[in-house]
Design a protein around this nucleic acid. Structure first.
Lengths: 192, 192
DNA sequence: CGTCTATTTGAATGTACTCAAAAGCGGTGG
DNA sequence: CCACCGCTTTTGAGTACATTCAAATAGACG
């Protein structure tokens, strides 16, 4: 039951036989978080990449009190502080549960073991990182070229499901603006 | 001679035998561009990922006249409009040569052929995209949390070599500010 | 029910942009 | 090799976008 979603996620991109499934699942550690629990906190070594089985996570950067949201991760998404995960460094990001959330975690060591044992998983992670790169390049394009109001519209369209589950404060921190200013943007939109 | 740099780039991450080298190189197409030539123009299907053998490229997004630079690619870097390359869509980005530049290009079809024939290249592209993702996630963190003056400092530190080869206008478009404002930032810095 | 946080609203401020003009610099052709 | 042309950079004034701070209101949760 626990592994159904993650296996489907993997088998969208590569096909597995039973022993590969077994081995992969044996490397995963299940963890449950309550609302507001930290999956990762800044400064702590980032040992895991997490797959969200249920619930929702928020990854954010804290710059003396001002929070910038790097990503929201829903069910069926992978999330980590990729820089610190790969390079075994203290995390820059915090990852917090926005509601009761279950994740499956893969350590860097287990990921390496998996890739060594079953190289076909190289393809899987190639695609995962390829998609992450696409997502981030598109976000960079928007951040640089669009004013806040349009970035807000795009966010609501693209992440409709997420937008309805989180607060405006969190959306503002994803867009790189203050909650007060997002409130003004929304007020203007209602008028027109 | 032409393939020395790209083979070294690949063999930093995976080891190749002679037939793998041969096959890989046979899929590459060499192209030369003069200063200001377009390697890719917006609207055109993005068929290639390009490896810079010499020279320097700039990838930018054009939003009715206002240009936003997505990346600079130096010798030994890979560059493409990743979204449109993977999805076979019309490019959003333009890629222009900032000086006489030689590239080696791999089409999506040839990349697929390569991955199919020699799956070990999955690992190579996994690492390439992983690094690209790291780069973009770090950039997003900075874009959201730092004011323009600090982003400029970071750019000069991190891309020192690039910073000395390009105009301030181009740096400004990478930072998401106007050249006039970058000029003001620099003037203030000199004073202090 | 009370408390804590999110959201709204407004005033004052700061950051960054637009437009315009002048100065600087680099490449090109004669 | 110089003079000119076009683009980059600088500077300044006026404006727009976005922030800060404060206070009032609304919502969520134990």
């Amino acid at each position: 039951m626990t592994f159904n979603l993650i296996l489907a996620n993997v088998e969208k991109h590569i096909s597995l036989n039973e022993s590969e499934r077994k081995f992969f699942c044996s490397l995963l550690k299940e963890k449950k978080f309550s609302k507001k629990d930290l999956v990762l906190s800044e400064g702590q070594t980032c040992r895991n990449i997490s797959f969200v089985n249920s619930g929702i996570l928020r990854a954010f950067f804290n710059y003396d009190g001002k929070e910038s949201t790097i990503m929201f991760a829903m069910k069926d998404w992978w999330v980590t502080d990729i820089n610190c995960f790969i390079k075994h460094q203290p995390a820059m990001l915090n990852i917090v549960a926005l509601e009761k959330t279950e994740v499956l975690q893969l350590t860097k060591e287990n990921m390496d073991k998996l890739l060594h044992e079953f190289p076909k998983f190289e393809k899987f992670f190639r695609i995962i990182f390829q998609n992450a790169y696409i997502r981030e390049q598109l976000r960079t394009i928007q951040n640089l070229s669009l004013p806040a109001a349009e970035r807000y519209d795009n966010f609501c369209t693209k992440y409709e499901r997420i937008a309805n589950m989180i607060t405006q404060k969190q959306i503002a921190s994803y867009l790189g603006i203050t909650p007060e200013f997002l409130s003004v943007i929304r007020a203007k939109k209602t008028k027109s």
